[in-house]
Simulated assay, not measured.
Amino acid sequence: MEPTIAPDAGRRMSRASLWVRPVLMTVGGLAVAALLLLADQEIAAAVLVVAAVFMGYWTSPLRAGRHEPFAQALSRRDDAHAIILWAPGDPLSARLQTAVRGDREDVAWVNVLRDPCAVEFLEAHGGRGALPLVVVGSTVLRRATASQYLEAKAEGEQRSAAAD
Rank of each mutant, 00 (worst) to 15 (best):
residue 110 V to N: 01
residue 94 A to S: 13
residue 118 A to H: 00
residue 22 P to E: 01
residue 92 L to D: 14
residue 1 M to L: 12
residue 55 M to V: 06
residue 25 M to H: 05
residue 44 A to H: 11
residue 73 A to W: 00
residue 59 T to H: 09
residue 83 I to F: 01
residue 20 V to R: 07
residue 33 A to K: 00
residue 39 A to S: 10
residue 153 K to Q: 15
residue 89 G to P: 01
residue 148 Q to G: 10
residue 160 S to F: 15
residue 128 R to C: 02
residue 14 S to Y: 13
residue 43 I to E: 10
residue 87 A to H: 01
residue 1 M to I: 11
residue 66 R to Q: 11
residue 135 V to M: 10
residue 77 R to W: 04
residue 47 V to F: 13
residue 160 S to W: 13
residue 13 M to V: 14
residue 130 A to P: 03
residue 2 E to Y: 11
residue 78 D to M: 08
residue 128 R to L: 05
residue 35 L to K: 07
residue 101 R to M: 12
residue 17 S to I: 11
residue 158 Q to K: 15
residue 14 S to M: 12
residue 66 R to M: 08
residue 116 P to V: 02
residue 32 V to S: 00
residue 155 E to H: 15
residue 65 G to E: 03
residue 64 A to T: 13
residue 65 G to P: 05
residue 134 V to C: 03
residue 46 A to G: 14
residue 9 A to D: 12
residue 18 L to N: 10
residue 117 C to E: 15
residue 48 L to K: 02
residue 96 L to K: 00
residue 131 L to S: 01
residue 33 A to I: 00
residue 122 L to N: 02
residue 162 A to W: 08
residue 47 V to S: 08
residue 107 V to W: 01
residue 46 A to F: 10
residue 34 A to Q: 14
residue 30 L to F: 06
residue 160 S to E: 15
residue 146 A to Y: 08
residue 104 R to E: 08
residue 58 W to Y: 12
residue 69 P to A: 08
residue 14 S to R: 15
residue 20 V to N: 04
residue 151 E to I: 09
residue 37 L to S: 11
residue 26 T to D: 07
residue 13 M to D: 12
residue 7 P to S: 04
residue 9 A to M: 09
residue 29 G to C: 00
residue 115 D to V: 01
residue 51 A to Y: 09
residue 142 R to C: 11
residue 95 R to T: 09
residue 30 L to Q: 05
residue 13 M to W: 11
residue 96 L to P: 02
residue 77 R to Q: 11
residue 52 A to N: 00
residue 113 L to R: 09
residue 53 V to I: 12
residue 55 M to P: 03
residue 57 Y to D: 03
residue 15 R to Q: 14
residue 122 L to Y: 03
residue 131 L to Q: 02
residue 159 R to V: 05
